[in-house]
Simulated scan of single mutants.
Amino acid sequence: MHENTEFRRESKAVSYREYAVHSHNSTPRFVVVPAGIGFFHITEQATGRVKGFRREHTEACALARHLEN
């Protein structure tokens, strides 16, 4: 794993506002986190575990929405 990936995954600077509007909960269970150049991890917010990844941000958001249901 890239040495900076853990640092980015721990970041609390991720904006949840746009995603939370579409969610039924006030805070989303899964969040999209940048994981390098052109890669995004979909992580479970409570545990920080990576549940998937995508190369495109829009595809990563779609997967996060799918995992919410």
Results as ranks from 00 to 15, higher is better:
residue 3 E to H: 12
residue 3 E to F: 05
residue 4 N to G: 14
residue 5 T to N: 07
residue 6 E to A: 15
residue 6 E to H: 11
residue 7 F to C: 14
residue 7 F to Q: 07
residue 7 F to K: 14
residue 8 R to L: 09
residue 9 R to K: 11
residue 11 S to P: 07
residue 12 K to F: 04
residue 12 K to C: 03
residue 12 K to W: 08
residue 13 A to E: 12
residue 13 A to D: 12
residue 13 A to H: 05
residue 14 V to N: 02
residue 14 V to Y: 03
residue 15 S to P: 05
residue 16 Y to P: 03
residue 17 R to M: 06
residue 17 R to A: 14
residue 18 E to F: 07
residue 20 A to E: 11
residue 20 A to G: 08
residue 21 V to L: 05
residue 21 V to Q: 12
residue 21 V to K: 15
residue 21 V to F: 01
residue 22 H to D: 04
residue 23 S to C: 13
residue 23 S to M: 02
residue 23 S to H: 02
residue 24 H to F: 05
residue 24 H to K: 13
residue 24 H to Q: 08
residue 24 H to I: 06
residue 25 N to G: 06
residue 25 N to V: 03
residue 25 N to S: 06
residue 25 N to K: 06
residue 26 S to L: 05
residue 27 T to H: 00
residue 27 T to K: 00
residue 27 T to M: 00
residue 27 T to F: 01
residue 27 T to R: 01
residue 28 P to Q: 01
residue 29 R to L: 05
residue 29 R to K: 13
residue 30 F to P: 11
residue 30 F to V: 07
residue 30 F to I: 01
residue 31 V to T: 11
residue 32 V to H: 03
residue 33 V to S: 13
residue 33 V to W: 00
residue 33 V to Q: 13
residue 35 A to T: 12
residue 36 G to V: 13
residue 36 G to T: 08
residue 36 G to E: 01
residue 37 I to R: 12
residue 39 F to R: 15
residue 39 F to D: 14
residue 39 F to T: 15
residue 40 F to C: 10
residue 41 H to P: 09
residue 41 H to I: 03
residue 41 H to Y: 13
residue 42 I to D: 04
residue 43 T to G: 09
residue 43 T to W: 00
residue 44 E to Q: 09
residue 45 Q to E: 08
residue 45 Q to H: 04
residue 46 A to T: 06
residue 46 A to M: 00
residue 46 A to R: 04
residue 47 T to S: 15
residue 47 T to P: 12
residue 47 T to F: 00
residue 47 T to Q: 02
residue 47 T to W: 00
residue 47 T to C: 02
residue 48 G to A: 05
residue 48 G to F: 01
residue 48 G to I: 10
residue 48 G to D: 02
residue 51 K to L: 12
residue 51 K to G: 11
residue 52 G to K: 06
residue 52 G to D: 13
residue 53 F to W: 14
residue 54 R to F: 02
residue 55 R to W: 01
residue 55 R to E: 11
residue 56 E to L: 09
residue 57 H to M: 06
residue 57 H to Y: 13
residue 58 T to S: 15
residue 59 E to T: 08
residue 59 E to S: 13
residue 59 E to P: 01
residue 59 E to R: 13
residue 59 E to A: 14
residue 60 A to G: 15
residue 60 A to K: 04
residue 60 A to Q: 08
residue 60 A to M: 02
residue 60 A to R: 04
residue 61 C to E: 02
residue 63 L to P: 04
residue 63 L to Y: 09
residue 63 L to R: 10
residue 64 A to M: 06
residue 65 R to P: 03
residue 66 H to P: 00
residue 67 L to Q: 06
residue 67 L to W: 05
residue 68 E to P: 11
residue 69 N to C: 12
residue 69 N to W: 01
